[in-house]
């Protein structure tokens, strides 16, 4: 149990540049942020670099955090997702516009919540970087397609297509995995 009981106390102490509070805030959220960023990069070294940048931004802009607009965790996560996207965007031709693509309706919705996070992550790692990012943003972080389109500077249709493709790929992988499991059993 840390010295600061609530996030509000923690933020106030961090704003006073209390090093113990800074350490506690970092220690409290670093694992969740590591997992979040890793889902985008699937690379440990890149994740560490992004986290350094992300937490630097967190401490720098902490004065702008508004408790009434949401939890501290969500605010920190948004910053880290943006940092991860900025990092990925630096790689050329990471996002391609799909002008004519068709977003397929989700015929067989998967109950993602019922699946184990560990092996979903494994399958997410196998997606292409573009599909992975859209899937993470829409399906896990909960961003709307409009928000995704704005953040990635792509059109909404591209976002829908990438998501549909990612879901299809994941469903196929999960089905294959479950089939293998049933054979073994």
């Amino acid at each position: 149990m840390g010295k600061f009981v609530t996030d509000k106390e923690l933020v106030i102490a961090c704003l006073k540049c209390d090093p113990a509070a800074q350490w506690e805030l970092y220690n409290k959220y670093v694992q969740a942020m590591y997992n979040t960023v890793y889902r985008y990069t699937c690379n440990h070294q890149d994740t560490q670099d992004i986290l350094q940048n992300g937490f630097t931004r967190v401490f720098k802009h902490l004065k702008n955090y508004d408790e009434s607009k949401g939890q501290l965790l969500s605010w920190i996560r948004k910053i880290h997702v943006r940092c991860a996207l900025d990092f990925l965007k630096k790689r050329k031709s990471f996002f391609e516009e799909i002008e004519e693509g068709l977003a397929l309706p989700d015929q067989n919705p998967t109950a993602w919540e019922e699946l184990e996070a560990g092996y979903i992550l494994k399958f997410i790692e196998e997606l292409t970087p573009r599909d992975r990012v859209i899937f993470n943003m829409r399906q896990i972080e909960g961003y709307s397609h409009e928000e995704i389109a704005e953040m990635l500077a792509i059109n909404i249709n591209s976002s829908r297509v990438y998501l549909a493709r990612a879901k299809k790929m994941l469903r196929e992988k999960i089905s294959a995995y479950q089939a293998r499991l049933s054979i073994v059993q």
Binding site: N27, Q48, F55, T56, F59, L121
Partner: peptide, 19 residues
Amino acid sequence: FDQLPQDFDRMAIWNGIEK
């Protein structure tokens, strides 16, 4: 996902953060 155990160097990251 947040609770998935990850093996990473907390101190190395912490040392690189500008506070």
